[in-house]
Amino acid sequence: MNVTEDLSIISLVAHASLLVQLVMGLLLAISFISWYWIFRKFFAIRDARLRTDKFELEFWSGGDLNALFQSAANDRHNAGGMERIFEAGYREFTKLRARPNLDAATIVDGARRAMRATYQREVDELESHTAFLASTGSVSPYIGLFGTVWGIMNAFRGLSNVGQATLSHVAPGIAEALVATAIGLFAAIPAVVAYNRFAHDIDRISIRWESFMEEFSNILQRQTR
């Protein structure tokens, strides 16, 4: 540990002990994946919101339900969540209505169950991988702290070989070790912020979908008479 050296980030990382370097590598990987999912989820949630807006506009503009269903069914791979809920419910509704001897409540209940199943699938799809962000936010500071503690332990152990102990003997080692905490925090802070933001956004979208289900059930019930 040369005292007169300059502490650039590269020398800091290069001089750290193997375990600290491993911790830094792990944290960098976690940080990369977490940023990847932050952007993926950001785009996905924005896309879901835009499609929901678009479908709500189409649905409440008073178009023919059959035509709407046809267009949703033809383009099912490119449809938004609300469109799929509508499609599932309407498909079930038409199937049940074709059967004889079924009363209105049963038909609407069947349609609602189909819609709920699709709704849960869609919400689950939106929420996927946000748990990863949550655990990144809570765990990566600890991983960084582990690397730091280990690095500081090494720095102090090296200090025991030096006759006259001064701060400049420990400082580089501690600085190296603290880089691990810094990387951990860099991974954790955006993950926590993004997780909270996404949880809120997903809540709002699912509430819109749920209220749409209720309203659509009412419309179907009116059509059975």
Binding site: W37, R40, F43
Partner: peptide, 12 residues
């Protein structure tokens, strides 16, 4: 639809 798969990787 999987919006922004490659964009996300690039942004990360």
């Amino acid at each position: 639809p999987q919006p922004g798969k490659w964009q996300s990787a690039a942004l990360a």
